[in-house]
Write a protein that binds this DNA or RNA. Structure first.
Lengths: 407, 407
DNA sequence: GATTTTTTTCTCGACAGTCGAGAAATTAAC
DNA sequence: GTTAATTTCTCGACTGTCGAGAAAAAAATC
């Protein structure tokens, strides 16, 4: 259904546009904003005057005049306009980061996650405590936090911040919205971790390639398998989705997965699955909860020395990934694939299987092998994705509500 | 990347909105348009005056006054504002339809497709002749045709009207744009057939459910297997995609498919595959080019009588479909599935396999079985999808260019 | 038949947004 | 001190939407 348009909408959109340009390029002068946005100088004056009145941006101190002419007045976001808390949930710890409105990291700490299965309720309490702690450490009051951005591996509700299934808590669902709502008035968003990786890579790609960028998939290899897809969208920038790739069916009736189903991709390509396969444990054995990376390193070393069973385990993992990727490509368009996560250190062993698995499908035989690149530093990408996404959400919200809020 | 907004854009969007409301509800009075769009009466006056001046809509003759008060002046699209040609390519024929701007069918005929493999070049010539013929029969000049909307089974380029792979011509690509460009100034669009089915069902669903509608998949069963997905999009209405589902990998190294690859879904669920399986022909046999439906009816009859091998063939087909659908659901969100095409007559035999195939995946075990409905009348849906899509494209183009065109 | 009521369409002034041009500000260079 | 260059700001013109009320026209009522 189409919706009606109005002049206020025009202003809102252009305000968001100005903020996003400021975000991407840092402090900018009047004329530069005009150049980047394509808006006329007069419009920039009007919009920036509004934003300044609403205390969202500020004029920077006169800096040493760089050239001749009237010195430029730089505009920048007010750092203290509001704060963002990033919560990254990983298998063994939870990392809290406090970030200001300009995207600068103010404080960060990690808390080990007690690896006890009683789980969900206690975990929520720990997160609540962690959030209060990071605020307290920087002496920032709760109502100045505009957004709490959470990420986890697993399956996430697309509209509400509800964790539907995760490798940690299984199908014990966690609704962060209702868990934090009474205390916090900040908006809460939850994203799949690999989706954020894809978002970050997509943003980088768009800066590098500009209009040529179409789409990209990020594949994260580790204890569990994640996939994020980012596509260039019409008006609204980029569109991203985080399918349930790790638990997509690889082979009916196949190996037993942590999730209790048989034949998931993860049951072949997850770290525990590679271990299970390397030791020739029956495929219906209940898989290990956690596998130290050193264990896998040992298997990899043996595989590189030519040990059959070890090499076979990696090959099987590669095949499962390749087949799965080929299925993904059958359902979308051709796109490059970026591989991240701790599993990238075994890419030499996985590669042949992945390529063979990809090559078994019609789409790859027809369109050729997709471009595959290895991008090792996953944690950086996750945080970068958080910032990209969270700050643009904040910009949007501020423009939508901010006009009235301070006027 | 965000783009700037302007007041002209507002007018364009709202003009398109008015046209789309007119399209959905037929001739409407001033006030009704205002109600449906949410725009004020004054705005409607301004927009309709523009559109009338551009000869896109017209005031209808005074009809018998229905109630008291000033009689309403109905506004409707001018039928003669332009024409649309719909070309539906099926395995044995090509159907040409001439439609006016109001969506009314003016003329239609089918031409048998010579089933000779020399193919592509001769086929393009036949289409060119067919297009000229349908114009000639109604004595409409070529430049009055605004859009040629073509559909086929197979894989289609998402941005240009190029048929990349089809069951008929294999990977002999056909570029309809360049084939028709010198003679025709009309825009040419090409869509996958099942995508249009999905679009039509999505539009119906949106009318029925309104904002509750989220997404839907259409699965077409026949000689080949097609899938279309429609999702409710942000501003621009609906978003549709037609994955290469029929040739998604079902089982690595499996049965030989028409496309030359092994293990495609179609190699288990296409009509030829069911035939092959029922007669226990080895799975690496090169499949029949064309299977008369009566042959399949016979197998179905035997299956219903309890013949093992026949029932097994349908069951295998169902399993391949179910597994494939579960993989699709792992990569998207939960959505209802509408099954169409000639294969629906065997749904009783396929059903158990489909449900079992679906149930083998984590996502279905967790979220439950998706809603499956059978919608038999595929050809009607294909045409309806053509109209929905083509006419809204025409509306868009007219508003974009029309303003200057006649002023 | 004249008047009132009801309904629909049209028009006018107010307001918001963008744009181009030119004025104002400010510094470097001469 | 004057001129040139550069940036910011302001003004008037234009386009768009909206709300209110005038105008139009038929049905209902007296």
């Amino acid at each position: 259904m189409l919706t009606k348009s109005s002049t206020e909408l025009v202003r809102q959109r252009n305000s968001v546009l100005v903020l996003s340009v400021l975000r991407r390029h840092g402090a900018l002068a009047h004329t530069e904003i005009s150049d980047f946005t394509g808006l006329s100088s007069a419009t920039i004056s009007a919009i920036t005057a509004d934003l300044e009145r609403a205390q969202i941006i500020e004029k920077s101190e006169q800096q040493a005049a760089s050239g001749r002419g009237r010195p430029r007045v730089l505009l920048r976001q007010r750092r203290d306009c509001g704060y963002l808390i990033v919560v990254i949930i990983s298998s063994d710890a939870v990392q809290y980061s406090l970030v200001d409105y300009a995207g600068k990291l103010i404080d960060r700490f990690s808390e080990e996650r007690s690896r006890d299965p009683s789980g969900a309720a206690r975990f929520v309490a720990a997160v609540q405590a962690g959030l209060l702690r990071i605020l307290d450490r920087s002496r920032i009051s709760q109502e100045r936090v505009l957004l709490i951005s959470i990420s986890s591996k697993g399956l996430v509700n697309s509209t509400e911040p509800v964790l539907l299934w995760s490798p940690i808590f299984g199908s014990d669902q966690i609704d962060f919205e209702s868990a934090l709502r009474p205390e916090w008035q900040a908006k809460v968003i939850l994203d799949n971790e690999t989706l954020l990786v894809a978002a970050a890579l997509g943003a980088r790609e768009e800066i590098a390639k500009g209009a040529d960028f179409r789409s990209l998939a990020a594949l994260s290899l580790g204890h569990s398998i994640g996939l994020g897809i980012v596509r260039r969208g019409g008006q609204t920038g980029q569109e991203i989705s985080a399918p349930n790739f790790g638990h997509m069916l690889h082979m009916a009736g196949g190996g037993l997965c942590r999730c209790g189903t048989r034949g998931c991709i993860e049951a072949y390509a997850g770290f525990y699955a590679i271990l299970r396969s390397a030791f020739e444990v029956p495929l219906d054995t209940i898989p290990a909860k956690f596998v130290p990376v050193v264990e896998l390193d040992k298997i990899a070393a043996r595989a590189r020395q030519g040990l059959r069973t070890s090499a076979f385990a990696f090959r099987q993992a590669g095949l499962a990934l390749g087949n799965g990727l080929s299925r993904m490509l059958s359902l979308t368009e051709r796109m490059p694939i970026a591989i991240t996560g701790p599993g990238t250190r075994y890419y030499d062993l996985l590669r042949q299987g992945i390529e063979e698995g990809l090559g078994q499908s019609h789409i790859v035989r027809m369109e050729g092998m997709p471009e595959i690149r290895v991008v090792p530093d996953e944690p950086i990408l996750v945080f970068e994705g958080h910032l990209n996404r969270a700050l643009s959400v904040i910009d949007q919200d501020i423009v939508l509500s901010g006009g009235q809020g301070t006027d």
